[in-house]
């Protein structure tokens, strides 16, 4: 479990990128951390991984402070940044060097993930394209089988088939002891993958709800015209997509993009619906 208590952080003294966030993230869940560019998603992830230290407040991963960077904490988390580094080695050499640090590393799983993501098993990783490198590191991250996996914009640079494979391998790597936090501003990429949506805006997490709960409270439709009682509407490839209050409480399929745009544009109308 990850616990954030009154977490505040700023790169300078007079501006806080993260402002007083209190949040609990539970095992067995895949969290989608959504937000516009520059809203603090990467900063929040870096704080949870101990790469940045809070200005005030606290972070605990199973009761441990990640900022202490203890080996027993580090071998239980993996952070995949947006800009990645890989040594000039092939996948076999990569695991020979780095896998011994991760006690739950699964070699078979690693090579299966590489195959599924269409990454050459024998090529020097440094010579691969950005997307290929990213896929290799995603495969490594998941094969480490750490309890906490933080993926920062993992689908950036991935082609469409790879995005589909990405969703597939995440589902297979998932188990009830793990916490996945996946940040993105390309909200469609997380469709049918995440089970809890976290939306950041104005330096805070303003929305934290499960997919089931969202489907109970809101209903998502598209058409040529939005009805008057729509809480929010926007133009997309389907015409006009809108969201409304779900009066009958029957589980609805959600549209993450419409939800995200709605929560950002009209938080005062949408967020209170979840507090009832």
């Amino acid at each position: 479990m990850i616990q954030l208590k009154s977490l505040t952080f700023g790169y300078t003294n007079n501006y806080n990128v993260i402002n007083d966030i209190t949040l609990d993230l539970y095992s067995g869940k895949i969290y989608g951390l959504l937000g516009k560019n520059g809203v603090g998603k990467t900063t929040l992830m870096k704080l949870m991984c101990g790469l940045l230290f809070p200005k005030s407040g606290s972070i605990e991963l199973n009761g441990n402070n990640p900022a202490l960077r203890k080996p027993s904490s580090l071998n239980n988390l993996f952070y995949l940044p947006e800009e990645i580094h890989l040594p000039a080695k092939n996948p076999r050499q990569l695991i020979d060097l780095y896998a011994p640090f991760y006690p739950n590393f699964n070699e078979i799983q690693f090579f299966n993930f590489l195959t599924e993501l269409d990454v050459d098993h024998h090529k020097n990783l440094k010579k691969l394209s950005f997307g290929q490198k990213k896929k290799a590191l995603i495969a490594f991250a998941l094969a480490c089988n750490t309890q906490y996996i933080f993926l920062d914009e993992p689908t950036n640079g991935l082609d469409i088939p790879s995005k589909i494979s990405f969703r597939s391998i995440i589902s297979r790597a998932y188990d009830e002891n793990k916490v996945f936090v996946i940040s993105t501003h390309q909200v469609r990429d997380l469709d049918s993958l995440i089970d809890t949506v976290l939306i950041m805006n104005e330096n805070k997490v303003i929305f934290n709800e499960t997919i089931e709960r969202i489907g109970e409270v809101l209903k998502f439709r598209s058409g040529s015209v939005a009805p008057e009682n729509a809480l929010f509407s926007h133009n997309d490839v389907m015409g006009i997509s809108y969201l409304m209050k779900n009066e009958n409480n029957i589980q609805e399929k959600i549209n993450i993009e419409t939800l995200f745009n709605g929560v950002i544009a009209k938080p005062e109308q949408i967020i209170p619906l979840f507090k009832k």
Binding site: R69, P71, L74, L86
Partner: peptide, 14 residues
């Protein structure tokens, strides 16, 4: 270098 540093700091060692 940021990407290298992240990779290196996250290696489970003190």
């Amino acid at each position: 270098k940021e990407s290298k540093a992240i990779f290196y700091i996250n290696i489970p060692a003190t």
